[in-house]
Write a protein that binds this DNA or RNA. Structure first.
Length: 903
RNA sequence: GGGCUCAUAGCUCAGUUGGUUAGAGCGCUUCCUUGACAUGGAAGAGGUCAGAGGUUCGAGUCCUCUUGGGCCCACCA
């Protein structure tokens, strides 16, 4: 083929992807008798643009799915996207802001239309980018978490859980994002260590005494204080327990309550209690039947309960209140203090714990299923250590707040009586925290399901649907079966559920993986996948996270533009060691680019030479007529096939890529192809044809082995060998007839010899063009040299090669000694270098060699002299050591003899 | 406060069950451009495997501790 010398990926990538997709290559082959193998994609957000994390995640999935497909499985990779409630709503809201409007001005219906329009226009970006990565997803099965089928699944799931008593509405303290103005689940809150202060504030006694000093990090919340807590055995406060203090500024009377949860050693040992704005205080308030006073609005501003601070931002209020306390002499002390502050995972705003009515999933029974999945159903994490993380989380699980006060998402299927519900809510807000804060749905006029004709409590007919939508993850956790058709009993669901493997990052084990397992077990009574491969996180060199704000992004699309998709994919696979984070730098992708280039050029060489077509099977040559090099490379190939298969079966992507890199580059190209060129020069056309055939045979197998890693370039070359797509080619299996330990041994000897001669040439600076003479002194095995004289001479730069047991060593020679091995006895290599060899230099070279051998021999001797080693080590290890010591001794003698001859 | 993880060549990292002389890519040094590939070829330099102790005939590999990075979880305000 007259291809350009450098591989140009852009030409071929788009073309092949189109052809594969059009040819239905990504669909599971219905005629295949292989067992199903399914993966569901971790659905990227519709708002997403491809980053390195996606590139890693999808490359690994694609490697596996292509591998399984070639192995004859009915391989299915289900793609799709996630509607990403808050994230997407935020994107569209920002767009509205540019238009100087808000979603509230637009109204709910219009706004949701806008989001759909946005999705229509931009939502396919990430999906197109996945195609550029070469992802062999079955796009005919693409799903979206808001499409009709999945919405049906969400509603079904909600109702089933509700009927099972696992969904309830409650008035609780939840994580609230004042910017997004919605509740968040515990998992959606990111804790960050913040350098703050611990403020010591005096609460005077109502009776006029000094009172006591509390310590707090959040002085603005004191406006909502309803009590002060101390430890019952704390001497300092014993006299104050049960007494009344005066809340600074608002002058509200506060009881001092004794409770052993208070840590006497922290701060002052006295804690202010603010049930409406602190999770610990909320529990405390429940236990002691306190009321809760909300002092902030949904926007995080102080409300009318905050007295003089009403209307202020919460942080502004903090500053002002500290000022006022200081002015009144109540701010006793300020000390630096770091604490973990919760932030919204979407917008990074500091979360405000807020009392509000929300929907929850009761998790304890589901967590039990999740634990069972590991203990009984054989759910397996790779690497295994994540099992513990998963189980620990399940063991300490808390109920899942699933309602979100946004508009983009699945509307909650619940209806409220306009008459009963507000009345009930008002009562509950006024009640004490010791009341059951789960809502009594009948009394509250709450109806789950489709719209009822009338309120079951008051029989009124004025009912409205819940304004809230469900947490995005409430649809994601159904993904492994909702994408296959659930709740309908589809053919896909029967065939591909449970799926086989999930590939994802550690960051969503709680959000997604654990919840899918629970949902799978709950709704379908089966775990959704047998194996979970958890890959690392992408970082840049230096260990930092890759982020836009740090400006250290490496854009996979740019890498693709510059070096090609295959280069990106191969490099990623090469760097992916089990579960370790990946530290990236731009130049790491050169490895893949260069490798692709090497493959390309090897293929050019091979395809330009005459050969029988590979498709002419069975093998049209007599194995006995094969040259040693032929036998050797075929043997190496069998090994590469076996090892690559083993590596992929255990998801050791880097191992697989290293094996193929080593085989193609350093065995096939560096040795075999170089020898093959020379074999073909011999003039024997049948040998030339045979060599060409073997080259093609190896190339063909390499293309198949490399295809999961580098689909495009391998297909491009493959098509020059035969017309059928590589995607339908079977995965290679080792051919026992070509496993050839003898060839390995014989070839190894010649390879060693060539390297030694090259070594001597380089050491003594023999000019490249100058041929040397090689004298080989040895008995057994030297006949081999004559047979392979042609390529040995050429590869080592030898002009004349003589093998004889008793040759005279010319003075001024460089020597080397090959140890006895297998069918060979020890060989002495002598390269006469009259004039080039400086005797002093040669002596030093030999002395260095002797020294190294002596060090090794000494270590072995002392090991063998050790009686405990002799009595405890296994006999074969001892025998091996003895054998190798003997050989070392022989070597040493050779070198020492050579040294003598110089002197 | 709990847990996980990493520390191996100048840099970035491999090293499956403990067993001869610890590997790769990049970088570096020397040499090589008559056609597969300079995104290349040949040769080479470079490591007391973070430190200390232990188990073992034998430890980069297993155990304990220390030091120094990274991450996750956690209701000390």
């Amino acid at each position: 083929m007259s291809s350009p010398s450098a591989y140009n990926p852009h030409e071929v990538e788009a073309r092949w992807y189109r052809q594969w997709e059009a040819g239905g290559c990504f669909k599971p082959d219905p005629s295949s008798s292989g067992s199903p193998f399914a993966i569901v994609i971790p659905p990227p957000n519709v708002t997403g643009i491809l980053h390195m994390g996606h590139a890693l995640n999808n490359t690994l999935q694609d490697i596996v799915i292509r591998f399984k497909r070639m192995q004859g499985h009915r391989a299915l990779w289900v793609p799709g996207t996630d509607h990403a409630g808050i994230a997407t709503q935020n994107v569209v809201e920002r767009q509205l802001a540019k238009e100087k409007t808000t979603r509230h001005q637009l109204g709910r219906e219009e706004f949701v239309k806008r989001v759909w329009a946005w999705r229509q226009e931009y939502g396919s970006t990430i999906v197109q980018q996945l195609r550029r990565l070469g992802s062999s997803c079955d796009w005919s099965r693409e799903r979206f978490t808001m499409d009709e089928g999945l919405s049906q699944a969400v509603e079904t799931a909600f109702l089933e859980l509700y009927r099972a008593g696992l969904i309830y509405r409650g008035y609780y303290l939840v994580n609230w994002c004042p910017r997004c103005q919605t509740a968040l689940s515990d998992e959606e809150v990111q804790h960050e260590e913040i350098q703050g202060h611990l403020y010591h504030i005096r609460y005077p006694s109502a009776a006029g005494g000094e009172g006591l000093v509390v310590a707090t990090t959040r002085p603005e919340t004191l406006l909502g204080d309803v009590a002060v807590a101390v430890h019952p055995e704390d001497e300092r406060y014993r006299s104050l327990a049960g007494k009344t203090l005066l809340l600074p500024i608002l002058k509200r009377p506060l009881k001092v309550i004794a409770d052993p949860v208070v840590d006497r050693a922290f701060g002052t040992g006295a804690v202010k209690v603010t049930p409406a704005h602190d999770p610990v205080d909320f529990l405390f308030g429940q236990r002691h039947g306190l009321e809760a006073i909300r002092v902030m609005s949904a926007e995080g501003r102080m409300n009318e309960q905050a007295g003089p601070y009403a209307g202020m931002d919460r942080f502004e209020c903090r500053e002002k209140i500290l000022e006022d306390l200081a002015a009144q002499g109540l701010l006793v002390k300020t000390e630096p203090h770091t604490s973990a502050v919760g932030h919204c995972y979407r917008c990074k705003t500091v979360v405000e714990p807020t009392l509000s009515p929300q929907w929850f999933v009761k998790m304890a029974p589901l967590a039990k299923l999740g634990i069972e999945a590991v203990e009984k159903d054989g759910l397996r994490f790779v690497p295994e250590r994540w099992t513990k993380v998963y189980l620990d989380w399940l063991a300490n699980i808390r109920d899942w707040c699933i309602s979100r006060q946004i508009w983009w998402g699945h509307r909650i299927p619940a209806w409220y009586c306009r008459h009963c519900y507000p009345a009930f809510l008002e009562k509950q807000e006024r009640g004490s925290l010791s009341d059951n804060l789960k809502m009594d749905e009948a009394q509250a006029g709450i109806h789950v399901g489709s719209k009822p004709a009338a309120c079951r409590h008051c029989k009124g007919t004025d009912l409205v649907q819940d304004e809230d939508v469900l947490d995005t993850w409430f649809s994601s956790w159904l993904w492994p079966f909702s994408t296959l058709g659930w709740p309908r009993e589809t053919e896909d669901l029967r065939t591909f559920y449970p799926t086989s493997l999930l590939v994802t990052g550690q960051d969503i084990i709680f959000f997604w993986v654990a919840r899918m397992v629970m949902a799978g077990k709950f709704f379908l009574k089966k775990i959704p996948f047998r194996e979970v491969y958890i890959h690392g996180i992408i970082r840049v060199e230096g260990g930092k996270k890759m982020s836009k704000s740090l400006g250290n992004i490496i854009d996979p699309l740019q890498v693709i533009d510059r070096m090609g998709t295959d280069a990106l994919r191969f490099s990623i696979a090469h760097m992916t060691s089990e579960g370790q984070d990946l530290y990236l730098a731009e130049d790491k992708f050169l490895l893949g680019r260069n490798f692709a280039n090497k493959l390309w050029n090897a293929a050019r060489l091979i395809l330009d030479s005459p050969s029988l077509p590979v498709s002419q099977s069975p093998i049209p040559f007599n194995p006995r007529s094969m040259t040693l090099a032929d036998r050797w490379i075929l043997n190496r190939l069998q090994r590469a096939i076996q090892e690559t298969t083993d590596a992929l079966n255990s998801y050791r992507f880097n191992a697989a890529s290293r094996i193929l890199y080593q085989f193609l580059w350093h065995e096939f190209c560096d040795w075999y192809l170089e020898i093959a060129k020379l074999q073909k020069e011999g003039g024997d056309p049948s040998l030339a044809q045979q060599t060409g055939f073997i080259q093609r045979t190896v190339l063909e197998a390499v293309l198949r082995l490399l295809h999961p890693f580098m689909p495009f370039i391998t297909e491009e070359i493959w098509q020059k060998l035969q017309p059928e797509t590589l995607m339908r080619a079977p995965w290679p299996t080792p051919n026992p007839a070509w496993i050839d330990p003898e060839a390995e041994e014989l070839f190894g000897r010649l390879d060693f010899l060539v390297t030694e001669v090259r070594n001597i040439r380089a050491f003594f600076r023999v000019p490249a063009k100058e041929k040397v003479t090689l004298l080989v002194q040895g008995r057994k095995g030297t006949a081999l040299l004559k047979e392979h004289e042609n390529w040995l001479k050429r590869l080592a730069g030898i002009g004349e090669l003589t093998a004889d047991e008793k040759l005279k060593r010319p003075s001024g020679s460089a020597v080397s000694h090959l140890p006895a091995a297998g069918p060979f006895d020890a060989w002495d290599l002598v390269v006469p270098l009259a004039g080039l060899v400086n005797l002093d230099v040669e002596r030093k070279r030999i002395e260095k060699e002797i020294e190294a051998l002596q060090v090794r021999a000494k270590a072995k001797r002392s090991r063998l002299a050790d009686s405990t080693f002799r009595s405890k080590a296994p006999p074969d290890v001892i025998a091996e050591e003895e054998e190798s010591l003997k050989e070392l001794g022989a070597q040493l003698a050779k070198w020492q003899d050579s040294l003598k001859q110089i002197q």
